[in-house]
Write a protein that binds this DNA or RNA. Structure first.
Lengths: 143, 143, 143, 143
DNA sequence: GTGGTCTAGACCACG
DNA sequence: GTGGTCTAGACCACG
């Protein structure tokens, strides 16, 4: 899971880490149960502050994407069927709120309902197709 | 246009104002050319500082939703056929990025592409229908 | 990047800062990615309030000239190949409007079309050559 | 000289009056020596405050476009050869400064010198051709 | 340390 | 009356 930090980005560094971990889980590059690098090693590799990685992991745990097993480090949560399921539900609820907010603003700019849905579909297609072949390959080959 | 501030919210106060003004424009509760309450009076009504409302209005102006006239206050812009629709293009571009981010996170939580689009469609329906009947009704009913 | 504030000027202080930062970017004195002085230190050096510098930087960010990173300050944006060149388009459109206004007023004063274009060309020459040799020289000379 | 006030514009009303008077002088619709409507009548016609028209006329006088003859009202100045000639010189000087400022900002956005001059030429063409036929007609026919 | 946000109070141009 | 600008001082998240 190669994480790249853009020191020039306007996004906080911990958000960049968070986004890329979520992206890796989305594409299957990181599978449920798989361990993540330790806070210390990732901080060293990325050349960022230890607290920054810590914060990223803590947020991902709060969102239900990771499970922290104390001394053994962080692991990808099995979101579908797990005690953290309510966290996913909360994320879905927040996503709904966010989609609503975007749609409202789009309407305020004179956009139409169908144009909004089309744009959402286009972005979904991009998000779900990216790395899809990689994911399939990673799941069927020997590793 | 009733605006409600949640002092406990994580959202900055000026963002809460911004969101609710955009919502009122979207539903037609605020029409192009219509005046908004003055910075001073809204600040008084909401119990927040003058500068906080000022910032909300300034952001809305920069995004193209409002026009400020130093003399007589803030007015809803006619964003649809404005010569500065660069502003709209910018907003639309940011919306696309945000939709992508949401879709990626949804995929990471095990969601499917079609479920994402369905949720987007549901939220769009809500955003575009809310108050629509009220608005139409106000023009066609005898009240 | 020496910035000079004229407290007696009609131009707001934040505009004076803005203009001089743009000038420094234009001449290459400030290059993309290069950090600017922090809001606090510049405010101290100029003898103005922190919020005044903050506003100047915020405007420059909104116009696409700067990037703000909450943690480590302000940096010169690489405006040329930015994905948000809507911002540049907006600036260019405003420039066109301004040029038109100047040309109309010049005509009203009895000026000719060719004289206007000649003056524009003269000013452009000055704006584009100023510091150009200095910049180039710094790279090719042995100093 | 039909003046139209856009109450929705972001420009101050006195600036709108100023710009349109300058435009009328530019196209020859208003000729040197010609009287302008009185402050009172123009204010009444435009439905604006008397002070607002007064300010517009005062600015135009300070810029050398008008001459105020006390009791007899405002007249278009003969800019070319008149005691207010130094005012025109000042306007030209300000125009040069403004052109420089625009060129510097354009360079900072990555624009080229030739592109700037081309845009200036395009705007000059528009400013000088607009109403040119009207002007010619007005000068050669019986009025 | 950095910028982001909020409050508070002042003076200004415009109308 | 209106918003625009400036100063002053505070607390926050991020690193």
């Amino acid at each position: 899971m190669p994480i790249v930090i853009d020191q020039m980005s306007e996004d906080p560094i911990y958000q960049q880490i968070r986004t890329q971990v979520i992206g890796a889980i989305a594409t299957g590059e990181l599978s449920p149960g798989e361990p993540l690098p330790s806070v210390r090693s990732l901080a060293r590799d990325l050349g960022v502050n230890l607290h920054t990685v810590n914060k990223a992991y803590a947020v991902l745990r709060d969102e239900g994407y990771l499970i922290m097993r104390g001394r053994s480090g962080a692991f990808v949560a099995d979101i579908r069927d797990s005690p953290v399921h309510h966290l996913t539900a909360e994320q879905d609820w927040l996503m709904g709120k966010e989609l609503r907010r975007l749609a409202v603003a789009f309407r305020a700019r004179g956009g139409s309902e169908s144009a909004f849905v089309e744009e959402a579909a286009r972005q979904a297609r991009a998000a779900f197709q990216r790395e899809k072949t990689l994911v399939k390959g990673a799941g069927t080959d020997e590793r």
